[in-house]
Design a binder for these strands. Structure first.
Lengths: 206, 206, 206, 206
DNA sequence: CATGAATGAGAGTTCATTCAT
DNA sequence: TATGAATGAACTCTCATTCAT
């Protein structure tokens, strides 16, 4: 950020610009997200945008920073609720939450997830990974499962990448032959299995 | 495609352009792939490019069409080899093949997979899906597993999306904390489990 | 200037702005001198800047006006000291003073001299020219050289332009092959000769 | 230069762009020399400009490269003519040539000289310096003056810088009080003296 | 047919200046 | 009066596409 907003008005502007960025990404895609488009969506001139942000990338980074906060809060909430669930129910809950989240906000999160490799995503990833790891550790402890679970980071890495991409693809071709409910249920089975395998002995080959 | 290449030279030119497209994508990324760059890589003028293709998108479509053929052939080969394997070994073989494939060709396939949602990917997806479904059907029949497997399309949908994205992420941060071998092995377990569940009774909750 | 500063605070502000202008020019060059930068350096808002100055040009004009006063005072001082010197020593003294002056103030004067033609320089030039002419007249009178010297204004015009530009170029490529001491000494000879020729008969051709 | 012009038409364009650059500099000054202005003056679109030049700086560099060639040729011509002159006449001839040169081309050279420190001038300076040094060496040899002259590079450095800036200033305020002929004549005396001093013993102080 | 010159809309960015607060 | 938010014209540069040669 170039200048620190010192008046109330400009703090509003900064928020409006980030909000506008999210709208534009949602509506026109990441490629259609241009500085003119953002400025227009925020109802200000391009100049104002550059008063507070170094450019498009800075705006997107700011948006991601804001989202990661929201997301972490959401995850905490879900974790509290999920503490008492069975593993399977917890996984289902998490997946359904993710799906709802990606469907919300006019597809913003879907578009961001799709374009992850073009975004400055390290900070977000680290933060979320930390959150999830900690939450998982607690869950397993509370449920008196032996801990540390075998390869927990690896299992979680696979778990959320698999879930994310599968859901992304699901949403991208919704109405295109795959039954969403079936996918979710099957995904729940798979992820539950993945995590259980970290506790029990490796499954024998078929 | 504007013109159907009927002379040998024209067919060579078309091939050269598609080949050039793949090179440029691999070397400069999808965003850096410009028509002048493609023409130059093909040793042809931009004008000629437009003689045979409607534009950049048409070239990329053509490239994908070509790749899908190659891929199908590769899959067939692997399927023949895999016919005699246990399910787990077949899954491992498929995943390792996928990983090797994405690493090959100077990262072309990785770049394409990353940007799948910006590409005209429907045809590719349908073709591959058909291939994989058919191959799987055969495999299960040969192994005298009851057939039709419960929700086979859904399970396959989840299987390849999970695998693809996890491997993509793995490659994007190679050397960044995750152990590739462990991920692959864990992935093998997970996918094997996913497919087995279509055969056996649903796993009871933990 | 928009307003005449009548209160003490206003006068301080005006001074601070001019001072800030000189700092910014010295540090960022004339091209990098922007009104926001000046305001910030002065610890004032852009708005205030425009309360007291019509714009960037007015600020620079004010800076030059201030500098010409300082310069005239410096010249007077030097003139007093130089009154008793031989012509050669006086010339050397003046040149060394000029060099020191241009090196001072973090290169401000060098930057101004370089960009003279983009600056409102007439007033400065006239004032200095008057000063120098008067001082020279006095010097020659005191040293009982016949007066008026032939073409004194012309000789002085050549003298300071030659000196200024040669020193500017010298400083711009310091460490680049030319020996500063040798240049200064040679310059002293040349300028001394130039002035002497106004007294004695024109030198015969070689 | 980005692309090498392969067709005759584009070679013309390259020339037209350089020509346009010189016109724009002459007419609107270096600050007014923008890529749109150059493109318009050349009667082409901005895009064409960027096909052959990396930008404004590249165009200016190309212009300077072209000018240095012209200048060197001019200097050689003058040197041949001047070979038989007395030192004073040669100096006068050179100064008058410089003045005429700077007045030509609608003030282009004047504007370039004024802004020397903002231009990529190293190549030009080196080339000209080499030319002048070599020519001078020959001249002094031919006139059986002892060689090497004391501090020849230093004397030449002073000679052309003094001449250039004095003439620049003269032209910038033409009609403003200084008599051009008188300045030139006086300058001739000064430069002649400067060079003679490298041959004879240093002049005694007045 | 092949060529590559030419286009121009549109992106990102800067900064002198104004004006509501 | 002081502030700093807001403006917007202007600039540099890119690239998909067309079309004269």
């Amino acid at each position: 950020m170039r200048k620190k907003p010192q008046q109330a008005r400009s703090r509003q502007l900064v928020d409006a610009l980030i909000e506008a960025t999210s709208k534009v990404i949602a509506q026109r895609g990441l490629d259609g997200t241009t500085t003119p488009a953002i400025a227009e969506a925020a109802g200000v001139s391009v100049g104002s945008l550059y008063q507070y942000f170094d450019g498009k990338d800075a705006l997107i980074t700011a948006l991601l920073d804001k989202l990661v906060t929201d997301l972490a809060r959401l995850l905490d909430l879900q974790a509290d609720t999920a503490a008492s669930m069975s593993l399977r129910d917890m996984v289902r809950s998490a997946i359904q939450l993710t799906l709802a989240f990606m469907r919300s906000n006019e597809g913003l999160y879907l578009e961001l997830a799709r374009n992850w490799h073009r975004l400055p995503v390290d900070h977000v990833a680290d933060t979320l990974q930390g959150h999830i790891l900690e939450r998982s550790r607690l869950y397993f402890l509370q449920h008196q499962l032996e801990y540390p679970i075998r390869d927990l980071p690896v299992r979680l890495f696979i778990a959320y990448n698999s879930t994310l991409f599968t859901l992304m693809r699901l949403m991208s071709q919704e109405g295109g032959g795959v039954n969403p409910e079936a996918v979710v249920e099957c995904l729940v089975d798979m992820i539950t299995g993945l995590l259980e395998q970290g506790v029990a002995a490796p499954a024998p080959a078929l």
